[in-house]
């Protein structure tokens, strides 16, 4: 496959198809240009309008909904101002949601990235079969979270699951994965990491393959051990890849829904921001306004992270 330019795709632009520069400014809106504007509108408008209606409009509507005490489907709602936000930031339930989100996000991002890097190192060898292994490792990333969640739910089943069988053969009883809030969180983290580490591995692999061989040879000649070569040469060179993966993984982790919904439908111990927002509006809580407030908080968080990302991408994470 082609090389993955993870950091340079935005900056290395091929020539843009520009209009000839010789057209005088006052004649820019001649007949041809006006016709072009109409063609542009006809080509781009359907997509742009759909994005405005179903991606941008909800961001605004959420703000309005978040000021309401409102049950989904009810014709009337009470305005509570910022009450939903006040409740979100003060109630113990909400702080547990923030805690679960933090634990889930940090462990899944860290787990998928560290394991992904290890797998990438295993794939980055002159061995037969690495291309096949790379495809296999990436596969879970494209699979339905619902299907994957069910497969693992069976593996984690305390009576008939493979895991309980393994634990029994070493004389241990299987814990109740789903019913224990802490273990339920651990369970969805394991499955999420399993599903996503292949993505990190493939992106890291592309980074590893762009490490210049001469640098490693030079380090070897200087007597650097393979561990030293990795920590002093490879890892610093990978820092743009690491930063890119950190941001993309953080964003996608904060959006995790499928696996959590199918493995722990009640959200006992696994209520992240996204999942709690879903349960509040569409679950048994019937609190659509509160749900909208959570969505606004989550979106604000994502916005800050994206801004940080753009700032850093602009300056790049340079290795000296």
């Amino acid at each position: 496959m082609g090389r993955l330019d993870t950091s340079d795709a935005q900056t290395s632009r091929a020539p843009v198809h520009r209009p000839p520069l010789s057209i005088p400014k006052n004649r820019r809106w001649n007949r041809r240009t006006r016709r072009d504007a109409w063609v542009f509108a006809a080509f781009a408008a359907p997509n742009v309008l759909l994005i405005l209606l179903f991606t941008y409009r909800p961001l605004v509507t959420n703000f309005y909904y978040s000021t309401l005490d409102w049950t989904l489907g009810a014709a009337t709602a009470t305005n509570v101002g910022l009450g939903n936000y006040v409740e979100f930031f003060t109630s113990p339930d909400a702080s547990s949601v923030l805690g679960v989100t933090a634990i889930f996000t940090i462990t899944t991002v860290g787990g998928a990235m560290i394991l992904g890097l290890l797998v990438a190192l295993a794939l980055n060898q002159r061995l037969k079969g690495t291309t096949f292994a790379r495809a296999v490792v990436f596969a879970p990333y494209v699979l339905s979270g619902v299907g994957v969640g069910l497969v693992w739910l069976f593996i984690f089943d305390p009576t008939y699951g493979v895991l309980s069988w393994i634990l029994r053969t070493v004389g241990q009883a299987s814990p109740q994965w789903v019913n224990d809030p802490k273990l339920a969180l651990l369970m969805v983290i394991i499955v999420y990491v399993w599903k996503n580490l292949g993505y990190c591995a493939v992106v890291y692999l592309a980074g590893l393959q762009s490490v210049p061989a001469q640098l490693l040879e030079a380090a070897s000649l200087d007597g650097a051990s393979s561990l030293r070569r990795f920590t002093s040469v490879v890892l610093p060179l990978l820092s743009p890849t690491t930063f890119f993966l950190l941001i993309t993984s953080l964003l996608s982790s904060l959006q995790a829904f499928d696996i959590i919904r199918i493995m722990t439908p009640s959200g006992n111990g696994t209520s992240t921001l996204i999942f709690d927002s879903y349960l509040q509006a569409f679950g048994s809580y019937n609190r659509a306004g509160y749900s909208a407030a959570i969505s606004v908080v989550l979106f604000a968080g994502l916005l800050v992270m994206t801004a940080v990302q753009l700032r850093f991408v602009e300056r790049k994470v340079h290795y000296s």
Binding site: V48, Y56, T61, Y65, L251, Q255, Y278, F299, L302
Partner: peptide, 27 residues
């Protein structure tokens, strides 16, 4: 195609990439 507000429209589409669909579900 030549169009005066191309950059704005492209930016609009680019930012939409970063809005998680779950946030828009209720509206």
């Amino acid at each position: 195609i030549r169009f005066p507000f191309k950059r704005v429209i492209f930016l609009l589409i680019l930012v939409a990439l970063m809005v998680p669909p779950q946030v828009s579900v209720l509206p």
